[in-house]
């Protein structure tokens, strides 16, 4: 398959895929491209519908069965479950850090290793999150580009 990138600052960004048929790999790629920029439909504290760009999300947490997304200065409720989010944003900067937590790696300020294998994550807004031992191994693999 030939990959051609044309850089033209005058034109709007557009991706065209020309193929004989949509193979499973191609389908995954299309889903990835679509999801990467698809805004998340969330609900604000005032019960207003808001759309949040996936890249603006710092982390997503599930508390008592409710999914919350945290941006730099807001918290919104989300209708999707963590599992659905994980499946949708597979291969992106989203990383499952614990059973109830998804972290956006692009908003991680620093990481701190603990002797029990857990990792303390400092987010851009100085919030601290804990990546459990099981997921810490996966995080290391993801950072190295193995996952």
């Amino acid at each position: 398959m030939k990959v051609k990138v044309v850089i033209d600052i005058e034109k709007e960004e557009e991706i065209t895929i020309q193929c004989r048929q949509v193979t499973p790999d191609l389908k995954k790629l299309i889903e990835f491209l679509e999801n990467k920029n698809q805004k998340l439909e969330a609900v604000s504290n005032q019960n207003q519908k808001v759309y949040v760009h996936p890249m603006d999300v710092l982390y997503i947490e599930s508390v008592d069965g409710i999914t919350y997304i945290y941006t730099t200065d807001n918290v919104f409720k989300l209708k999707m479950t963590l599992q659905e989010l994980e499946d949708t944003y597979q291969g992106t900067d989203y990383f499952r850090g614990a059973k109830n937590l998804i972290i956006n790696i692009q908003h991680v300020e620093s990481l701190k290793s603990q002797l029990n294998g857990r990792i303390i994550v400092t987010m851009d807004n100085e919030e601290l999150l804990v990546v459990s031992r099981h997921y810490a191994r996966l995080l290391k693999e993801k950072l190295k580009g193995e996952k």
Binding site: D93, S110, S113
Partner: peptide, 17 residues
């Protein structure tokens, strides 16, 4: 371990930004 992790994080961000 912390230094290694942060090095990987910087490299990941650089390659995926």
């Amino acid at each position: 371990n912390t230094d290694k992790l942060n090095e990987s994080l910087r490299s990941y961000k650089k390659n995926n930004s």
